[in-house]
């Protein structure tokens, strides 16, 4: 089993690379918090074409919640010159839609979520953001942070030469102490998972059997009306 970059983070890496190509310059830095699996994910992004990686690998981060992760990431980013941060819209494990917004909040920079298209010109970024029933177009000065939405791009695959080159690209590994962070302050979660269970599995219901398609349709509508009472 190989660990993958979450799909939304993959959109983020791809968009960063495209922006670098369009602007004909810049550095794409991948920042992550985690252990060996996160290092593997950074290597994949480096193989796609990113320039360097920073991994915060500290056993103390294992109990971090989204806010703790965001504190760590924003501390790392503060030490770098940057114009733009691109983040996945949500983690595909806890699905809390929190880290991107929180990093922007801690850095006090403009935040736009669920972006399907962006343009950068004259120190400003214009983002097309998906909302219920349409798209909102918003413009912010850089530096800014946006999160990705499906539809933004089609991530490239890492080429074999890319994989070879990635092995030589810099990957800094830091601990919380290196960042000057007190583990007790960032690690204590405000929220605890107290139990997990599988949702009740839906069971196979009735296959409607009737002589003709018309009879099947009529029987379905009767059942939805009289038995399930949903129409």
């Amino acid at each position: 089993m190989s660990w993958i970059i979450s799909p939304y983070d993959e959109f983020a890496v791809e968009e960063a690379l495209r922006i670098k190509e369009m602007q004909k310059g810049g550095t794409v830095t991948i920042v992550s918090v985690g252990g060996a699996k996160a290092a593997e994910a950074i290597r994949t992004a480096l193989a796609m074409g990113a320039d360097k990686g920073i991994l915060v690998n500290d056993p103390a981060t294992a109990s971090c919640d989204g806010l703790g992760i965001a504190r760590i990431v924003s501390t790392v980013v503060k030490s770098l010159p940057f114009d733009l941060i691109i983040a996945g819209q949500r983690a595909v494990d806890d699905e809390n839609f929190l880290v991107g917004a929180a990093v922007a909040e801690f850095l006090k920079i403009p935040f736009t979520s669920l972006v399907i298209r962006q343009e950068i010109a004259d120190g400003k970024i214009t983002c097309h953001r998906t909302i219920e029933g349409g798209t909102a177009v918003v413009s912010s000065p850089l530096p800014a942070l946006f999160t990705t939405q499906r539809g933004l791009n089609e991530p490239r695959y890492a080429s074999l030469p890319g994989v070879m080159k990635a092995k030589k690209k810099p990957l800094d590994v830091k601990t919380l102490a290196d960042l000057g962070l007190d583990p007790a302050a960032v690690v204590k979660p405000l929220m605890q998972v107290i139990s997990m269970r599988f949702p009740e599995k839906r069971k196979a219901g009735k296959i409607i059997d009737a002589a003709t398609p018309r009879a099947k349709a009529a029987e379905l509508v009767r059942m939805l009306h009289e038995e399930a009472k949903v129409i």
């Binding site: 919640d65 809390n96 839609f97 929190l98 922007a104 979520s113 669920l114 953001r129 219920e132 929220m191």
Partner: peptide, 19 residues
């Protein structure tokens, strides 16, 4: 989309837990 957005921003601004 708006509710999830503003809830995340408030969680960070107020350092309050979010579900």
């Amino acid at each position: 989309t708006q509710g999830k957005d503003v809830a995340a921003c408030l969680s960070a601004r107020l350092y309050a837990p979010l579900a």
